[in-house]
């Protein structure tokens, strides 16, 4: 129990540092600007490894591990057959539903491994990978942390979550890309040492200028997919989980027999 809590703290801390790795351009001081660029780029893969180790080491039972492997494979397979064109990737649907059905901790690691597996297999490995993994992990965690609601509004809630996270993911990936894709001497680049709000305004302009065309379709796609498929797939997952319940209790067995 104690170990569990401590490792949750580690995950929180690593996530916090991860968040800084996305947002540093907004409030970086002028002195350490270029150091920050490279440092965060190098730190991110390390953070991803730390997270994977912390979640998996000795705490993953066989069944969870098998679910993880199989769900990651499904996600990556869907990506590989091109079920999604530009940005329309069913992978998000999978991470959200998986997180919802199996809980936040599972959602977190599912995000990490799904992204990694599909990148390894389809050749999408690059400096951006660790950033994508981190985002996916947060999204999976969030899906698991959504409040339990009545069945009738469960899907609409998930669909909203899917839409919001799609937009957020786009923004985060842009944020991560910002210092790399925008040359410093332009009017939409970040200014080291400037006010956060000022930088934020510049970022918003960059974000709208470049990526909105991808994010809105992705959000719509997520929503549709969740509304259309969420129910049957959630049911399948829950049925599968239920089949793994263990009860070894001699007294209980007798009672059950009597009934």
């Amino acid at each position: 129990m104690k170990k569990e809590r401590l490792s949750s703290l580690v995950i929180l801390l690593a996530s916090l540092i991860g968040l800084l790795a996305f947002t540093w351009p907004l409030f970086i001081s002028a002195e350490n600007d270029s150091a920050a660029r490279w440092l965060f780029l190098g730190l991110m893969p390390l953070l991803a490894i730390i997270l994977i180790v912390e979640i998996t080491l000795g705490q993953l039972d066989v069944k969870t591990l098998a679910f993880l492997g199989v769900l990651s494979a499904t996600g990556a397979a869907l990506r590989a057959i091109g079920a999604g064109a530009v940005g329309l990737e069913p992978i998000w649907f999978l991470i959200i539903i998986g997180g919802k059905a199996l809980g936040k901790r599972f959602g977190f690691i599912l995000g990490l491994t799904t992204m990694l597996a599909s990148a390894l297999l389809t050749g999408g490995v690059g400096p951006w990978l660790a950033f994508q993994m981190m985002c996916a992990a947060w999204i999976g965690w969030g899906a698991g942390a959504l409040p339990k609601v009545k069945e009738s509004i469960e899907l609409p809630l998930l669909a909203c979550y899917g839409a919001v996270t799609a937009l957020l993911f786009g923004a985060m990936m842009d944020l991560q890309l910002w210092p790399w894709i925008v040359s410093p001497a332009t009017s939409i680049a970040y200014l080291p040492g400037a006010e956060v709000l000022d930088n934020l305004q510049r970022f918003v302009l960059f974000h709208f200028a470049t990526a909105l065309a991808w994010d809105i379709p992705r959000a719509i796609f997520n929503t549709i997919l969740i509304l259309l498929l969420g129910r049957p797939i959630l049911n399948s997952l829950r049925r599968a989980i239920r089949r793994g319940n263990v009860l070894i209790n001699r007294e209980h067995a007798r009672e059950q027999m009597a009934v």
Binding site: R242, G244, V246, I248, N249, H252, A253
Partner: peptide, 9 residues
């Protein structure tokens, strides 16, 4: 029942 679940005596 260790893996598949069920009530066992």
């Amino acid at each position: 029942p260790h893996h598949t679940g069920g009530i066992f005596s």
